[in-house]
């Protein structure tokens, strides 16, 4: 029981839970209290201080949308957004119930009747938008990984290819998503002309923009990892006379996995960061669009709602990072090197 709780704490990144678990199991009480003070007490004081400064500081500034919202207003809007989501779901359920009842009645009258099933067309709620954003970032991340991993491995294996590609990598790496977006938009609009709605155009544009910005970290880390595999392992491959494919899959890739995952982790972080900007301009119905719409909306709650989005982005980004860390631990042979 205790072991499971401790494991849970470290997996979720909530290291501060560990002394609590130990405290409840009666292990060196004074020591644990000290630990709790360090891991929970001090950060808590800092957070409270931050909230106080925010609370009183916000009151000093008046914008055209009213006062800058304090923590209390942001919390209120969080609840409001959740309530809207629940409301919307109830409406949707009611709509489908009505539709089903109508269709059932029709069928009862005439078994061969033409039945129409229509999707509910309410506006997406905040929670829907979060999921759209997640879907977009994973799509972009997937595209980025599919491009960056093979190219990175090839770059790492061949010095000549690395020399050929390096200038381009270095030049494209620092480009902002906002610069890519118009280009991607034009190209996608020109190439992706089907209108069957399988994938939204704005979704594709955002995803590709995300991949363009996030693939560099994976590419560079993979190339670096592959090119700097421990010489001992390479000697083993030579002495055993492994074929190039076997050498790549049995020796080079396993040895590089920790660095590859470091790259993927950075990529996902960058992708998530870039996503908001991409969605804002591409009008992909995710968090970015939410922020933009609220900004354009300009009601007295807008700023508070945007701040909710800020916290959402931050917290989800943190969770994504933790997931990547755990994946990294799962695949790497040397578990101590991962923070």
């Amino acid at each position: 029981m205790k072991a499971i709780a401790l494991k849970l704490c470290s997996v979720t990144g909530m290291k501060w839970g560990i002394p609590f678990v130990k405290l409840f199991s009666g292990e060196e009480v004074l020591e644990q209290l000290k630990e709790i003070w360090g891991t929970v007490g001090i950060p808590l004081i800092a957070i409270v201080t931050f909230l106080l400064i925010w609370h009183f500081g916000a009151k000093q500034i008046d914008t055209s949308l009213g006062q800058v919202p304090g923590p209390a207003m942001v919390w209120e809007q969080t609840k409001a957004l959740w309530a809207e989501h629940v409301d919307e779901r109830i409406k949707a359920d009611e709509f489908y119930a009505r539709q089903d009842a109508r269709n059932a009645a029709k069928l009862a009258k005439n078994p061969n009747a033409n039945i129409r099933v229509v999707d509910y067309t309410g506006k997406p709620t905040y929670i829907d938008q979060i999921f759209t954003s997640l879907k977009t970032v994973f799509m972009g991340f997937l595209i980025a990984s599919l491009i960056a991993l093979p190219i990175g491995i090839i770059c790492g294996l061949s010095k000549k290819i690395m020399q050929a590609l390096n200038p381009m990598i270095q030049v494209f790496k620092p480009v902002s998503p906002l610069a890519w977006l118009p280009i991607v938009t034009m190209i996608v609009s020109a190439v992706y002309v089907t209108n069957d709605g399988w994938l939204e155009k704005s979704f594709i544009i955002s995803a590709i923009t995300v991949s363009l910005c996030s693939l560099w970290a994976t590419l560079i880390n993979t190339a670096l990892g592959v090119s700097s595999v421990n010489e001992d392992y390479i000697n083993v491959a030579k002495v055993l006379q492994l074929s190039p494919t076997k050498k790549t899959f049995k020796i080079v890739l396993p040895a590089t996995l920790p660095l590859i995952f470091t790259g993927l982790r950075i990529s996902l972080g960058v992708g998530w960061m870039v996503l908001i900007a991409a969605e804002m301009l591409a009008q992909n119905p995710g968090l970015g669009k939410f922020v933009w719409d609220e900004f354009q909306n300009g009601s007295s709650q807008s700023l508070a709602r945007i701040m909710v989005a800020v916290f959402t982005v931050g917290i989800i980004g943190f969770i994504l990072d933790r997931i990547m860390v755990e994946l990294q631990k799962l695949v790497s042979f040397d578990k101590k090197t991962i923070a």
Binding site: D232, N235, V236, Q241, P254, F333
Partner: peptide, 19 residues
């Protein structure tokens, strides 16, 4: 001219594959 299965090597630092 190169490595061969005829000559097996035991390395100083073991050189096992940790994975």
């Amino acid at each position: 001219t190169g490595t061969s299965h005829e000559r097996g090597v035991v390395f100083q630092n073991y050189s096992l594959l940790p994975w």
